[in-house]
């Protein structure tokens, strides 16, 4: 008997809770909200992640100078296409844009390291910050590797500068 009363009360409670929105007209949001997933921003992030990973691959010696420049040209072209309107105008998801900005910063940081001669042009050893000679083979650091080739690849990739500012 107790179970039966419990059951009736349970059924009544369930009905009240489930049907309340239908009677009161209160609803859940149906359309994409302000902070919702933004395809553009997500694609930007994917493009930037690919570029970031490329920098790491170069840094760790997985890619040599030539392959690096070739792929950088392609990836940069893709990234530029995705960046189209730019996060200031297009992106609506602050989270995704923050992620994009972080990636951009990281890419800049990696490229600084490459450009400022941390990585030896001859043996590709990654040196400690501030080093003037390669700790592995002794070559003087500072001259960026494959500069001309990189610029050529960039120009071919769409005429935009592929590198960070200050190059």
């Amino acid at each position: 008997m107790t179970a039966l009363i419990g059951g009736i009360l349970l059924a009544a409670g369930v009905m009240l809770y489930v049907l309340e929105p239908v009677f009161s007209g209160r609803g859940a949001p149906v359309y994409a909200g302000e902070d919702d997933y933004d395809e553009g921003a997500a694609r930007r992030r994917v493009a930037l992640t690919a570029l970031r990973d490329l920098e790491y691959d170069r840094m760790t010696g997985k890619l040599d100078g030539k392959d690096y420049e070739l792929l950088k040209g392609e990836l940069s072209r893709d990234a530029l296409r995705q960046l189209g309107p730019g996060p200031e105008e297009g992106g609506s998801d602050p989270g995704v844009d923050r992620a994009s900005r972080q990636l951009e910063e990281e890419i800049a940081q990696l490229r600084d390291a490459l450009r400022e001669g941390l990585q030896c042009a001859r043996c590709e050893h990654v040196n400690r910050g501030g080093a003037r000679f390669c700790g592995h083979c002794g070559k003087a650091l500072g001259s960026p590797p494959d500069l001309a080739e990189g610029a050529a690849a960039t120009a071919a990739a769409g005429g935009m500068p592929v590198d960070g500012p200050g190059r």
């Binding site: 960046l83 996060p87 992620a99 910050g129 960070g164």
Partner: peptide, 23 residues
């Protein structure tokens, strides 16, 4: 979560890359 980007030891004072220049 969010990953703080630490400044490189040798990194000069520069803002983040403008979007157009990254690619």
């Amino acid at each position: 979560g969010t990953v703080p980007v630490r400044a490189t030891v040798r990194r000069k004072a520069r803002g983040p890359l403008p979007a157009g220049a990254v690619g």
